[in-house]
Design a protein around this nucleic acid. Sequence first.
DNA 1: CGATAAATTGACCGATTGGTAAAAGCTTAC
DNA 2: GTAAGCTTTTACCAATCGGTCAATTTATCG
Lengths: 214, 214
Amino acid sequence: MIPRAAKTQRRTRIQEEKEEKILEAALDVFSAYGFRGATIDQIADAAGMSKPNLLYYFRTKEAIHRTLLDRMLFTWLEPLRAFDPEGNPESEIRSYIRRKLEMSRDFPRESRLFANEIIQGAPHIEDELRGPLRELVDEKAQVIRAWIKAGKIARCDPYHLIFSIWSTTQHYADFDVQVQAVLGDKSGEGRFEDAARFLETLFLRGLQVEKPGA
Amino acid sequence: MIPRAAKTQRRTRIQEEKEEKILEAALDVFSAYGFRGATIDQIADAAGMSKPNLLYYFRTKEAIHRTLLDRMLFTWLEPLRAFDPEGNPESEIRSYIRRKLEMSRDFPRESRLFANEIIQGAPHIEDELRGPLRELVDEKAQVIRAWIKAGKIARCDPYHLIFSIWSTTQHYADFDVQVQAVLGDKSGEGRFEDAARFLETLFLRGLQVEKPGA
DNA sequence: CGATAAATTGACCGATTGGTAAAAGCTTAC
DNA sequence: GTAAGCTTTTACCAATCGGTCAATTTATCG
C-alpha cells in the first residue's frame, strides 16, 4: 500500500525507478518556479504519470521538495567540506572556486532550486542553515583565519570571502539567462574557462597569495 | 471608470495613493514568492483592500508585476550608468561596488524581485536584458578594456568583472537569510561596512589598482 | 445643494489547486 | 495456477486561483 513503508521493508524496482523519475521531473519544475509556483500536475505531467499515481509515491508536494532539498544540501556543501586545512592556501582556494564553478555548470537546476528556496526566505531549510551549514562555515573560517595569522594570505574577513566565492560561482547557474543575454548565446565550454580564469585570478591576486614581486 | 485612462486624463489623488499602496504591497509578495507563487488575494490583503478594488487599479496580476519590474530595472542600472570613463579606475570601481551594496541594503525587496525573475528564466523581461541591459554592459566593458590597455588596471575579462560585482553585492540582499544564518542575526550596519571593506579590498587588489609596492 | 464621475463592494464565474477514495489492473512468490 | 500485495486509474472533493459584474457608496465639482 504505502510504498515508503511496505510490509517487506524492501523497495521494489518499480518504486526505485518511479521515485527517481518523479524527483527528476520535480527538479525541473521546482527550480523553474519555486515551491509555491510549482504544481503537482506539472510535475506529474513532466514525469509522465497521473497525479494520483505520483501522490502514491510522495504523499505531498512538500515531501518531494524536501527530498530534493536534502539531497541538494549535502552535495552543495561537498566542495567546502573538501577544503583542507593542511593544504596550501593558494591551491585550496583555487580548487574550491573551480569545484563550485563546476557544480554551477553541471547542476544548474539544483543550484536554482537552492537559490529559489533561500531568496524566498528558506522556509523549509532554515534549521539546516543555522545548524550544519553554519557550523561548517565556522570551521572553515577558522582555517582561513589561521592562514592569515601565518601570513600565508592577506588579512580579510573569512566569512565574506566565503560568501563572495559562493555568489560569484553560483551566479553562472542562477543568473544564467542574464549571463547569456549579455554575452550572447555562444556555447558554454569557452565561457566556463573564461569565468574560471577570471575568478581564480581575482581571488588569488585579491588575497595576495602569489609571491610579492615587482 | 477605468482609472488609467480617465476622461479627465488627470490622475486623482486617490489613484496616486492607492496605486502606490498596491505596488508597495505587491513588492512584498512578489519578492517573497515569485510571480507564479504570488496571489492577487495576498497582495490585496497586504494593501488593505478588496480584490476587485485592487483589480480596479491594475487590470491583471501581470500588470502589477510589469510595473514593478520596469521601475526596478531602471534604478537597478543606475549605478552602472554612473560608471565614468573619465574618472580614475580605482575610485570608479570602488564607488560602483559601494553603490551596488547600498542598493542591496536599501532595496532588498527590489533585488529579490529581480532575482526571482531572472532565476525563473526572465520570462517577462528577456527583451530588456538582451536589449538595453546588454548595450549598457557592452559600453561599460569597453571602458574597462580601455583602462586595461592604458595599463591602469590588470588584464581581465571585463564582462566577468561586472558579473562578479553584481553577484557579490546582490548576494547580501538575495541570500540575506543565509548570510544571517551564518553570521548570526546581529544588526546590519556593522555587517554592511564589513562587506564593503572586504569587497573593495578584494576587487582593488585583484585588479592591482594600487601602486606596485614591496 | 444636486449631479456626475470615481471608488468600493459582495456575489459570483470557470479553471486550477493539493489531495482523497475506491476500485481495477498488474507483479510477484508460492 | 492463484492469492496477496503492489501499482495505476477514474472519479471526485473542498479550497483557492485570476478575474468579472452589477450594484452601491463615496468624492468631486458647479
